[in-house]
């Protein structure tokens, strides 16, 4: 059992969720309520990571983050370390490949809030921020929670992109999914089985948590 890999994965998933939560709320709300030119293109771009093969997506990220790229150079100058094959690089990659999971369910959640309720909130004197906090978020919450749970679970399990961008450096980029693969390659089926079981447990727990949260919310509203 590779505890370092497990904690690394949890840390990666935690950071991804923390950073994507505001993105999920703001981008989801914006896409739900605003009509603008090229909205379809934006929505398609957000969904792109879902359909691209992980290795292809990982390859492009590797090229984009590499020392030869403007992004890689900029990162090197500002932070003094390289973006590829580092934990920070994994976080950035994780944020990008989780965009569809973080934004789509939140967008659906906000779309479910009736236009009239938002108008009523404004007519009650609530500013757009207070309306978001007092009326929209409490009603769109199931969508946002779903988005975060999917993001968390998906980060724990992502393999191809992590391997392409981060490699398998213990304590830095070797996540639990990669550790499982390593163990299988080394014919250490027992360790692989234990780690797989741990992942199954965590996944079941997060799904149970989502169901419980949304049923509690449903009860509150009826």
């Amino acid at each position: 059992m590779d505890w370092t890999a497990l904690f690394l994965s949890l840390r990666l998933a935690g950071w991804t969720v923390v950073i994507l939560l505001p993105v999920s709320v703001l981008a989801g709300r914006y896409l739900a309520y605003r009509q603008f030119r090229g909205k379809g293109v934006v929505e398609a771009l957000v969904m792109l990571p879902l359909v691209l093969p992980p290795t292809v997506f990982g390859f492009y990220l590797l090229v984009a983050f590499g020392r030869g790229s403007p992004i890689g150079q900029w990162w090197q100058e500002v932070f003094g370390s390289q973006l590829v094959f580092s934990f920070q690089g994994l976080v950035v990659a994780s944020i990008i490949f989780n965009l569809p999971f973080a934004i789509q369910p939140a967008q659906r959640g906000f779309e479910a809030v009736a236009t009239e309720l938002r108008e009523a909130a404004a007519c009650c004197g609530l500013s757009p921020w207070r309306s978001l906090w007092k009326v929209e978020l409490p009603l769109a919450w199931p969508g946002v929670v779903t988005a975060m749970v999917l993001t968390f679970a998906h980060t724990l399990g992502e393999f191809g992109i992590v391997l392409m961008v981060g490699g398998s450096i213990p304590g830095e980029t070797r996540t639990i999914a990669i550790a499982i693969y390593d163990r299988v390659q080394a014919f250490d089926d027992r360790s692989a089985a234990v780690m797989s079981l741990v992942l199954v447990g965590i996944s079941l727990f997060t799904i149970a948590l989502t169901f419980w949260l949304s049923s509690r919310l449903g009860r509150r509203l009826s």
Partner: peptide, 28 residues
């Protein structure tokens, strides 16, 4: 709208479903 001091009763009432009657009133 939120800077216009007005009261609106909507056709379908548009009450905030997650708030009690008192909370709905206090929201305004």
């Amino acid at each position: 709208p939120h800077r216009r001091r007005l009261g609106v009763v909507f056709q379908s009432y548009a009450l905030f479903p997650h708030m009690t009657a008192a909370q709905n009133v206090m929201a305004a």
